[in-house]
């Protein structure tokens, strides 16, 4: 059985003037035990998909199942077996850490003791603050408590909507280590994130933009499908280098990427490029062929002509 199945799901939100299509004919499935990532910016449709799968929102069209249960007919059965951590902190701010966890255990007819082993790893870090009100916790601790509350009834599937947004790199890394340990215990995990560097930590990912899935595969396969050579270019003046590279006639795309610029060419005439950069005052420009990352692939896919709004704006 598939852990999650979506078939041609459409979700629109009418506004006064127009109708926004949040999820536009999305189909995919997730295997049991998989750590599956929905990767994309705000407005990609990630939250709508999570809310449809957790039976909190009805789709306009299409069918969705969670562990074989239909999200419309069998919503009660689904609610017993899924854990959901929404993007916005949704615990009771005026209950303490322990009261929140106890509350969620109680609604699922269980106790903290019964499933303590599942949350122990995460909850241990919160225990010194168990009498503190949830509203008074730090961002990182709220995130850990929310995950504990989503886990306390021993769900078969965990839905985590942008659990690491706005979280610093250290806490993000710790969070992903926790997810790996949960996966090892056999829990299927669907997680969304706007951080492309987290994509490689998933078994499979869907790259999403404007309600559509641009591609869906393992991170390794997505990178292999990049289909062109990618070069990193560095010189002393990175700002002028960026403009100069973009003006180079054979440039297909050029983006700033941390300490280097990433470049793809329509025609690989490296000697010509080196000469071109030298003439423009870039001495010691370093050009190296590199492996693309998920973010390179994401941008490549975004540039395909199916984009609904123009990406290139004149500055």
């Amino acid at each position: 059985m598939k852990a999650v199945e979506l078939e041609n799901i459409v979700k629109t939100y009418p506004t006064k003037k127009t109708t926004v299509t949040a999820v536009n004919d999305v189909s995919f499935s997730v295997e049991e035990g998989e750590l599956f990532g929905l990767i994309g910016p705000d407005g990609a449709g990630k939250t709508s998909i999570f809310r449809i799968l957790t039976t909190l929102l009805l789709a306009d069209k299409g069918e969705a199942k969670v562990l074989g249960y239909n999200v419309v007919k069998d919503y009660k059965a689904i609610r017993d077996i899924v854990g959901y951590m929404p993007g916005r902190f949704s615990l009771y701010q005026d209950l303490t850490v322990e009261e929140n966890l106890e509350f969620f255990a109680t609604i699922f007819n269980t106790t903290i003791q019964e499933n303590y082993n599942l949350v122990a790893d995460i909850y241990k870090q919160l225990e010194p603050f168990k009498t503190r009100r949830a509203g008074k916790l730090s961002g990182g601790m709220k995130q850990k408590l929310a995950l504990s509350c989503a886990l306390i009834h021993k769900p078969k599937i965990l839905f985590l909507d942008e659990p690491t947004t706005g979280v610093d790199p250290v806490s993000r890394r710790e969070f992903w280590e926790m997810l790996k340990r949960l996966k090892a215990q056999g829990i299927t995990i669907l997680v969304s994130t706007p951080y492309m560097d987290e994509a490689k930590l998933c078994d499979r990912i869907a790259l999403m933009q404007d309600g559509k899935i641009m591609t869906i595969d393992t991170p390794g396969n997505i990178v292999r499908q990049f289909g062109r050579n990618l070069f990193s270019v560095h010189s002393e003046n990175m700002f002028t280098l960026l403009n100069d590279l973009r003006a180079f006639p054979q440039t297909e795309s050029c983006f700033a990427f941390g300490e280097n610029h990433h470049l793809t060419l329509t025609e690989e005439s490296m000697a010509e490029l080196e000469e071109y950069l030298l003439v423009r005052g870039h001495k010691n420009a370093a050009i190296n062929k590199i492996e693309p990352g998920i973010e390179d692939c994401f941008m490549q896919l975004m540039k395909s002509p199916s984009q609904p709004f123009p990406n290139e704006m004149a500055f």
Binding site: G40, P41, D42, L242, M299, M302
Partner: peptide
């Protein structure tokens, strides 16, 4: 203060182009 949260990677870079230009 965290100006680029939540935007797609191309927009994020266009935003930095504007930052470079302002600094320039």
């Amino acid at each position: 203060d965290e100006p680029t949260g939540g935007v797609d990677p191309i927009t994020r870079r266009q935003f930095w182009d504007m930052i470079y230009e302002a600094a320039h």
